[in-house]
C-alpha cells in the first residue's frame, strides 16, 4: 500500500533513507568503538575523523526524521480535509433531497443515480422492475426541476464549484 500515492511513496523513500543512513552511522560508531584502545600509528587522525563522520551522519538522520514527520502530518491533514469535504458533500446532497421532498425510496434511487449507476443495476439492487426505477427517476427529475441525469448531476457540481 506504500505505493498508493506519490506522497506515501515519498514518505517510504525518506524512511528507507533514514534506515540506510542510520545504519551507515552505526557502522562508523561501531568502528570508533572497535578502534578505541587499539594503538595504531594512524589512529591519531583516524579516530577523530570517524567520530566526526558519525556525528554528521547522526545529525542528518535527525534532520530527515523531522522532514518525515512533517510530511506525515501534512498527509494526515490532507486526508482529514478530504474527509471533511466528503462529509460536507453528503450534507449538501441530503439538504437538496430534503428541499425536493423526495420519498425514502426516491432518495435511495437518486443517490445511486448520482453515483452513476444505471437503471438496470439500480432495479437489480433494489429488487424492483426497471420500469419502476424509470418512473422514480422521472419523479425525481420533476421534483428537482431538471431534464435528466446530466442536469441532476450539474446541480451538485455547481454547488461544488460555486465561489462565495
Amino acid at each position: 500500500m506504500t505505493g498508493r500515492d506519490p506522497q506515501a511513496r515519498r514518505a517510504a523513500t525518506l524512511a528507507a533513507l533514514i534506515v540506510a543512513q542510520g545504519l551507515c552511522a552505526m557502522f562508523f560508531v561501531g568502528d570508533v568503538i572497535a578502534d578505541i584502545g587499539v594503538d595504531v600509528a594512524e589512529s591519531r587522525f583516524h579516530l577523530p575523523l570517524e567520530a566526526f563522520v558519525a556525528t554528521v551522519m547522526i545529525f542528518g538522520v535527525i534532520y530527515f526524521m523531522i522532514e518525515l514527520r512533517r510530511l506525515l502530518s501534512r498527509m494526515a491533514e490532507m486526508d482529514t480535509g478530504l474527509r471533511a469535504a466528503r462529509g460536507d458533500m453528503a450534507g449538501v446532497i441530503e439538504r437538496f433531497f430534503d428541499d425536493w421532498e423526495l420519498t425514502p425510496a426516491e432518495r435511495d434511487v437518486a443517490l445511486m443515480v448520482l453515483k452513476g449507476i444505471d437503471n438496470e443495476t439500480i432495479a437489480a439492487v433494489r429488487g424492483t422492475a426497471p420500469g419502476t426505477v424509470r418512473a422514480q427517476c422521472t419523479r425525481i427529475y420533476g421534483k428537482a426541476g431538471v431534464d435528466g441525469r446530466a442536469q441532476l448531476l450539474s446541480v451538485f457540481m455547481e454547488e461544488l464549484l460555486a465561489e462565495d
Binding site: 533514514i18 542510520g22 561501531g30 526524521m65 523531522i66
Partner: peptide, 19 residues
C-alpha cells in the same frame, strides 16, 4: 548485530521526534 543496534537507535530517536 551492529545493524540491529542501529535499527534500535533509529527507533528510539523516532520515539522522540516521530508522529
Amino acid at each position: 548485530g551492529y545493524a540491529a543496534l542501529g535499527l534500535l537507535a533509529i527507533r528510539l530517536l523516532w520515539g522522540i521526534v516521530g508522529p
